[in-house]
């Protein structure tokens, strides 16, 4: 094992940039994706029929095609057609549209929206109807029922699954190394290509991913216990029991 390359400031910078880009991609696509997911779920349950069908088509396409293909579709396909449109290269959006980060975030947001949207849809449907009826009996408006009762109860039920979705998102990030965006895998590949050490950089980033997953899991666990209406975790309750 030879980790002497870690002292090289170039490699440190690559790894740091890769780490930061990974964090940003997870943060941006995680939050935008979950917001989209709520929309996807509600549109299918309560939306007008044409909208529901459209959203159903969206989830079918996104869940039915490989993420890498989608990434190439947006980066190589859509991204290369854009400059052909007159004025795009001069527009204020161009710095964003030429940046691979944008295409990575877009692809992952849509992916989280489709997968988590289905998870949330299932969770919303399994909220006992009696609870919503109770809300109506208390005179809550439809909107109040949605954001005071239905959504919190539904999301609370599927939080552990959403944690899994976020971990999957984190582990999808290395795909962006194929579109010239510096992530941890790309940084490791650069170290490999220049030092010819194959295992050491891979082991290092595997360790970083594992650590990020542990932090993410711990964070989501915290959200699970603090979420409105959460019951104390079963393990903790058991610990309180004698013997």
């Amino acid at each position: 094992m030879d980790f002497s390359w870690l002292t090289d400031p170039f490699y440190q910078r690559y790894l740091w940039t890769g780490f930061v880009n990974t964090l940003w991609l997870v943060a941006v696509s995680g939050s935008l994706g979950l917001a989209l997911a709520v929309g996807v779920a509600l549109a299918q349950i309560r939306g007008p029929r044409p909208l529901a069908l459209l959203v159903r088509g969206f989830t079918t396409v996104i869940r039915g095609t490989p993420l890498l293909v989608q990434l190439f579709f947006f980066y190589d396909g859509v991204g290369r057609l854009l400059p052909a449109i007159p004025g795009v290269q001069e527009s204020l959006l161009w710095p964003l549209l030429r940046d691979p980060f944008f295409y990575g975030a877009l692809t992952f947001t849509l992916s989280v929206g489709a997968y988590s949207g289905e998870v949330i849809r299932g969770a919303l449907l399994s909220v006992p109807p009696g609870e919503l009826a109770a809300g109506r009996a208390f005179g809550l408006s439809r909107w109040q029922i949605l954001y005071r009762l239905w959504l919190p109860r539904g999301i609370q039920m599927c939080l552990p699954t959403l944690t899994g979705e976020m971990i999957l998102l984190l582990k999808s990030v290395p795909l962006v190394s194929t579109i010239a965006l510096m992530d941890l895998l790309k940084a490791a590949n650069l170290v490999r290509d220049e030092t010819f050490l194959v295992y050491e950089p891979l082991l290092l980033i595997a360790g970083i991913y594992l650590a990020m997953t542990l932090v993410l899991t711990a964070g989501m666990r915290l959200v699970e216990t603090r979420f409105p209406g959460a019951r104390p975790a079963r393990s903790r309750r058991r610990r309180l029991l004698p013997g």
């Binding site: 190589d76 991204g79 400059p83 290269q89 190394s177 010239a180 510096m182």
Partner: peptide
């Protein structure tokens, strides 16, 4: 500096104005 896996990708991105 943007680093590509393959030269062809860099060439294509030059043509695409990226």
């Amino acid at each position: 500096i943007k680093i590509y896996d393959r030269q062809e990708q860099a060439n294509r991105d030059l043509l695409a104005g990226r």
